[in-house]
Simulated assay, not measured.
Amino acid sequence: MSTVSDALKKTLAPTGRLRASINLGNPVLVHRNPTTGEPEGVSVSLAQAFAQHLDLPLDMVVFDTAGKSVDAVTREEADFGFFAIDPIRGQGIHFTAPYVLIEGAYLVREGSTFTCNDDVDQEGVLVTVGKGSAYDLFLTRELHRAHIVRAPSSPTVVDVFMEQALDVAAGVRQQLEADLQRFEGLRILPGRFMVIEQAMGLPRGRGEDAARCLFDFLESAKASGLVARELARFGIQGASVAPAAKA
């Protein structure tokens, strides 16, 4: 039985059902099961565990981009979700501490003169990112000379990069590594241009008690080994469990 009060449950899930916003655009955290078509992955496992913690039924509201997932929680069309921490998103979402750290990387053609991440921010360079993704938000702030071209979603970044003959594709390292198997003549620049802190979050209007409940749940999930087990179960490489956080 849940130790969370009925009043707090009502704050966390006003409809009586816990609605999780799930973003299919980040393959590190969630994907569709090839047999059933249902979403599965670290995010889904955590959503299920949080619903069990609250002793509430779970509904998954599934989106193909991070931007749509963010909007759903900001507008309170979902009760919580899984996001890269970003100050712009933080205007409408109260984040927990991160639970997973993920590398952002650049992909270029084999013949490109770029040899390191610092080479990218030059006049005339066209960098494609998934619209509304953490990389879009970060690079919009950090790139001062290169120009950003926004693909419809993170999984389509390399398709747009190829179709429009752009200079650089930016995204989750695991997604870019998978794209190397789809297209010839590409390479990933060494290192990373950012580390993405993936957290859970809920609408800011839900208040401090709700935010504390979600924070405590996630810290417990990290400490118990749940996050690490789910990363291993789904064969995720290149992502690590974030360190424990203090409130």
Rank of each mutant, 00 (worst) to 15 (best):
G41Q: 04
D55I: 03
V44E: 01
S43H: 04
M60N: 01
Q52E: 12
T36F: 00
S21L: 05
G41M: 07
P39A: 15
D71Y: 10
G37T: 01
G25A: 14
Q48N: 09
N23V: 00
D59P: 12
S45R: 11
F63H: 15
L56T: 08
L24Y: 02
H53D: 15
R19K: 15
G41W: 02
L24H: 01
F63E: 13
N33K: 07
G67R: 11
A66F: 05
G25Q: 04
V62R: 14
T35V: 14
P57F: 12
G41A: 08
D71R: 13
D64I: 14
G25S: 15
E38L: 13
V42N: 09
L54H: 11
A47T: 10
L54A: 06
M60C: 04
L46G: 07
N33V: 09
G37W: 00
G37K: 03
S21P: 12
T65F: 05
K68F: 11
D55G: 13
E38I: 07
D59M: 10
V30N: 02
A49D: 07
G41L: 08
L54M: 08
F63G: 14
A51S: 10
R32Q: 09
D71C: 03
S43C: 09
G67F: 00
A66I: 00
M60R: 04
S69I: 04
A51R: 02
N23F: 02
T35L: 11
A49Q: 10
K68H: 13
M60A: 06
F63P: 15
L46I: 09
T35P: 00
E38G: 00
V70I: 15
R19T: 12
V30Q: 04
H31T: 15
L29G: 15
S43N: 10
G37A: 03
L46H: 06
N26T: 07
V28P: 14
D64V: 15
P27D: 01
L58N: 05
G41H: 03
L56D: 00
V42Q: 08
V30D: 06
V42D: 13
R32A: 08
D59T: 14
D71G: 13
L56V: 11
S21A: 15
R19S: 04
A47W: 09
Q48R: 15
L46R: 05
R19L: 09
D64G: 13
A47N: 05
N23M: 02
A51Q: 01
P57W: 09
T36D: 04
D59Y: 08
V62L: 11
P34M: 08
P34E: 12
V62C: 08
P57L: 08
L29I: 11
G37Q: 03
G67L: 06
T36S: 15
R32S: 05
N26M: 03
G41F: 06
S69V: 04
P34L: 10
L18G: 10
E40H: 01
L24R: 02
D71K: 12
R19G: 02
L56P: 00
G41S: 08
D55C: 08
T65Q: 10
S45E: 11
G67M: 02
L54G: 06
R19W: 02
K68W: 11
F50E: 01
N26V: 04
V44T: 05
L46P: 14
A49E: 09
P57Q: 05
